[in-house]
Computed example of a mutant assay.
Amino acid sequence: MIVALHGVEFFAYHGFYPEEQKLGSRFVVDIEVEFIPANDIAEDDLNNTVNYEQLYEIACEEMKLTKKLIETVAQGIINNIVKQYDFVDVVKLTINKLNPLIGAKTKSSSVTLTYNK
């Protein structure tokens, strides 16, 4: 089973350069969490799955912590998901930084990290 959030938007202050950490940027996060339910999903019980609202909260809290690298931010989100949901088998997470400061018009830069149990 896969539970996912796609296109979650944040404004945050991640970036290697001081001006990025001062001015901030827009980011878009995609999270996919794969697992085998321990109990029958037909029980209609939130405890038998991954709560996508909780995934959002985990991402939101990590996005508030200014980092130089979006790789570090992504790893922090994955670490917290795995801590919250120790039964997950795979977490795939992509962070897109919109309009990065690279000296040319660029839609986004991104990093994708994958955790495999």
Rank of each mutant, 00 (worst) to 15 (best):
K22C: 00
D40V: 04
L5D: 05
A12C: 02
T49A: 13
K105F: 14
N116W: 07
C60G: 04
D40G: 14
Q21G: 01
F35D: 00
V111C: 12
P100Q: 01
F16N: 09
T49W: 10
D86E: 09
D89F: 03
L23I: 01
D44E: 15
I36L: 06
N51I: 06
N80W: 04
G15H: 01
G7R: 09
L93K: 13
E34W: 02
A104N: 08
L65Y: 01
L46C: 07
Q54M: 02
P18M: 04
L93A: 11
N80L: 01
V82K: 05
Y17Q: 05
E53F: 15
H14S: 00
A42I: 10
D86V: 03
D45Y: 07
Q54Y: 07
F16K: 05
F10V: 11
E19I: 03
Q54T: 09
V3Q: 04
V90F: 12
I58N: 04
I81K: 06
P37T: 07
I31E: 08
T72W: 08
E32K: 15
V88E: 04
T106M: 15
R26A: 06
G103V: 13
Y52I: 03
Y56V: 10
N96M: 15
V73S: 00
G103E: 13
P37H: 02
Y17K: 05
K92E: 15
I81Q: 05
F10R: 05
F11Y: 07
K68Y: 07
V8W: 07
I2D: 14
A12L: 00
F27K: 11
K105W: 13
A59I: 08
Q84M: 11
R26Q: 01
N116S: 10
A4I: 07
I41R: 10
Y13M: 03
I70N: 10
I81E: 00
D44M: 12
F11S: 04
V73Q: 00
I31A: 14
I31Q: 09
V28N: 08
V8F: 09
E34F: 05
K22F: 03
Y13C: 03
F87T: 14
N96A: 15
E34I: 06
T94I: 14
K68H: 03
M63W: 00
K105C: 08
V111I: 15
F16W: 09
A42Y: 12
N80C: 05
G76T: 05
K97H: 01
Q75D: 11
I31S: 11
K92A: 13
F16H: 14
